[in-house]
């Protein structure tokens, strides 16, 4: 069960600000979903390997050959804030 404190922690981990109202709203729904997920506990997976990639592929590479980059203008074209060619982010602290 996820409590309010857990939800606050997960919200912080996910960088999703949650209002008090959000927390009220989400907690029961998340818990009912997790409750449903609990179904998988019944599956016997003893000795079963996890499947990360559905196709057994290995060793996919590219050669060390330069390809076209975006122009600075293209790179900045979607940035809400930029300055002197840099993308502008808020202060760190």
């Amino acid at each position: 069960m996820i409590g309010k404190k857990d939800l606050e922690h997960i919200g912080w981990l996910a960088r999703l600000e949650l209002s008090e109202e959000d927390k009220e709203k989400y907690t029961p729904k998340l818990n009912s979903i997790l409750d449903y997920f609990g179904e998988i506990d019944k599956a016997d997976t003893e000795g079963v390997e996890p499947l990360y990639h559905v196709l057994p592929m290995n060793n996919v590479f590219r050669e060390d050959v330069p390809t076209r980059s975006l122009s600075q203008e293209e790179a900045l074209s979607n940035a809400p804030k930029n300055q002197d060619g840099f993308i502008k982010a808020p202060r760190m602290m």
Binding site: F37, D41, A43, T45, V48, P50, L51, Y52, V54
Partner: peptide, 13 residues
């Protein structure tokens, strides 16, 4: 959760 789900994925496959 995550690893268990991936093991089930193996079983489904």
């Amino acid at each position: 959760y995550y690893l268990k789900a991936l093991k089930i994925r193996t079983l489904i496959k």
